[in-house]
């Protein structure tokens, strides 16, 4: 299956709660390695799997230090950095709200209402400790991290070009420039626009398939750690950054903060495309990227 972009092989598996597609200039073996890396991320960071690092932390870390895999530790470190830089808007301890709204299953631990990212303590030996009874969910960035690990696995196998797409979190590398379509935020079965992407990661967040009603009000899975409120407007946010984990986290921040996220985007040299409910695009550019649309809205 050779196309203009030199992609030779394309595979798709259910993983991380979505369908993950990997296409590359390589062999089935290479793709297997990439999927294996992603499966490992799933195993470590699943909220549902009782043996995952996340489940073990949620169960024990408020009582004793829990040793986690270096990958989990890295994701936690990054999450803490996003929390610090966004002054707590990004907060993995908002999981308790997601449990309340039924986005996540109820864990065995008793939950307390307080606590924030500031109560998570990481030491340099990969130990995690919670100062209060709280739970974390890495759903906001683990998928992006998994995409990064898949790309690393492919590169490690000397694959020269490819794309990994985990249902909205994707990354391209090598010569291939890929066209990625973005769904219309209010009518997700339509396509609202397209971007061309090369040597870059990108993530899209929208609540179109995920919004639900709780006590008569719409709620969504993207929460503002400051207010505890969810952003559930029918908009979509696409962020392009060097790494998919960064793009993944930044989409959530732009979703909540909109224009106020510009400083964060600049720090990570990332670009954002925001589609309003009616499909109107607005852009925030902060990267040294190659070509772009001339119409700026920011």
């Amino acid at each position: 299956m050779r196309s203009h972009s030199g992609i030779e092989i394309r595979r798709c598996r259910p993983l991380l709660g979505t369908l993950v597609e990997i296409a590359c200039q390589g062999s089935p073996r290479d793709i297997d390695c990439a999927f294996t890396a992603m499966e490992k991320v799933q195993r470590l960071m699943s909220f549902h799997d009782p043996t995952s690092d996340v489940a073990r932390m949620n169960c024990h870390a408020s009582r004793r230090p829990v040793k986690v895999h270096p990958w989990t530790w890295r994701v936690l470190k990054s999450a803490q950095e996003f929390s610090r830089k966004s002054d707590g808007v990004f907060d993995i301890t908002m999981a308790r709200q997601l449990v309340k709204w039924d986005y996540l299953p109820r864990p065995d631990t008793r939950l307390c209402s307080g606590g924030s990212w500031r109560d998570i303590v990481l030491d340099d030996e990969y130990n995690v400790r919670f100062r209060r009874r709280l739970i974390v969910d890495l759903g906001g960035i683990a998928k992006g991290f998994a995409v990064d690990r898949a790309v690393a696995a492919l590169k490690n196998n000397s694959v020269t070009a490819g794309i990994v797409n985990a249902g909205g979190d994707l990354r391209t590398f090598g010569s291939a420039s890929e066209v990625v379509y973005v769904r219309h935020p209010a009518e997700p079965t339509r396509i609202a626009g397209a971007v061309r992407l090369r040597e870059r990661a990108m993530a899209t967040s929208g609540v179109y398939f995920e919004r639900r009603k709780y006590r008569g009000k719409y709620v969504g899975p993207i929460l503002d750690g400051h207010t505890g409120q969810s952003a559930c407007e029918l908009i979509s946010v696409t962020v392009a950054a060097a790494e998919c984990m960064i793009a993944d986290a930044l989409t959530k921040l732009v979703f909540t903060l909109r224009g106020k996220a510009a400083g964060l985007l600049a720090q990570y040299r990332a670009d954002a495309l925001l589609l309003e409910r009616n499909g109107t695009p607005s852009w925030m550019f902060h990267s040294p990227c190659d070509t772009r649309d001339q119409t700026r809205f920011d």
Partner: peptide, 24 residues
């Protein structure tokens, strides 16, 4: 290879969702 993140205009005829998006 330089990074790229560019907007692409779609021809009017293309703005619908593809009536069938299919991958084998």
């Amino acid at each position: 290879m330089k990074s790229e993140f560019a907007f692409i205009a779609l021809p009017v005829s293309a703005l619908i969702a593809p009536s069938a998006f299919a991958v084998r």
